[in-house]
Design a protein around this nucleic acid. Structure first.
Lengths: 157, 157
DNA sequence: CGAGATTTGACAGCATCCTGTCGTTATGAC
DNA sequence: GTCATAACGACAGGATGCTGTCAAATCTCG
């Protein structure tokens, strides 16, 4: 049994990476199904959430940084959300072109409804992973992401 | 302090979900940069890895299941890999149309080179997260994914 | 105050993954 | 043995995210 070809799949880090990919996919699928009846998608819901967090309004580039995405990806979603009148643009006193993205009342109502739909699932996740595991998993992923971001930044220099 | 608008962002599960999204994005970016000099992308590398694991050859649908993706996504990548002669198709004794995807020698060599490039990063991850954390994080994500897959399957019935 | 660097938005093109639908092939119930 | 079901591949279309490039606005520093 020493002849089994053993590519570095045995490495513990690889198992983690594969689980992250699978969890990411499963979360997006769940999110899409969850907000589809509201006319939303996972991506739009996420951007809406990021806008909701920036109470005073944030430029697109800031939202992208918060989400770990590029400006272009977020810009496209924001434009679509603006088209649907779920978000609007407020003048930015600190930058003429970089207008602030703010929620419209309609956007707030829709986001509220999405949040209500999500709540039971969030609770179920918290039930499947007790508070200690939930927190340690989050912390460990944050540690991993810190390393990855650092590595990515370094290679782009 | 009871008036702060508090959408369910405070929920511990949400912090975990956001970290999974960010980690996923960072991993794909790192993977793309890592195998770009080899003429590969993250997705092709991943599919190549899945083919490498199925030593005897697997039909596309099986590979997709293993990766948590749809058949169509994997099929397109496999076709491109076949075009580049990195994988080939072997007849499937159990199914006339569902041919088995197998590595070509060239694919094996390329995957080997990608693995060698990845190894230092895998080690670095294992260094940033000690074995116990690495394993518990992987296990907890697997638990989460079990719940998510179950929920997704249920809603598609 | 002025030149270069940085940040931000706009536009174009591409890679990846999804859903929906159809025809072919295997499998299982009867 | 036959028919319904499931599994698999093929094809079309849409959604999301990325890179590359350029212009406008701001900031930094001498």
């Amino acid at each position: 049994m020493t002849d089994a070809p053993r590519p570095p799949f045995e490495h513990p880090a690889n198992a983690l990476v594969l689980e992250i990919f699978r969890a990411n996919g499963a979360l997006i699928r769940l999110g899409d199904a969850l907000v589809k009846p509201l006319g939303l998608t996972s991506a739009r819901w996420q951007v809406l959430g990021a806008v909701a967090q920036g109470h005073g309004g944030l430029p697109v580039a800031r939202i992208a940084d918060n989400m770990g995405l590029t400006r272009q990806s977020v810009q496209r979603i924001v434009d679509e959300l603006a088209e649907a009148e779920l978000v609007g643009f407020a003048p930015n006193p600190a930058h003429k072109r970089a207008k602030l993205v703010v929620m419209t009342p309609r956007g707030q109502r829709l986001f509220q409804r999405a949040s209500e739909r999500w709540a039971p699932y969030a609770d179920a996740i918290a039930a499947a992973l007790d508070p200690r595991r939930l927190r340690s998993t989050t912390d460990n992923l944050a540690t991993l992401r810190g390393f990855l971001d650092q590595t990515n930044d370094r290679s782009s220099e």
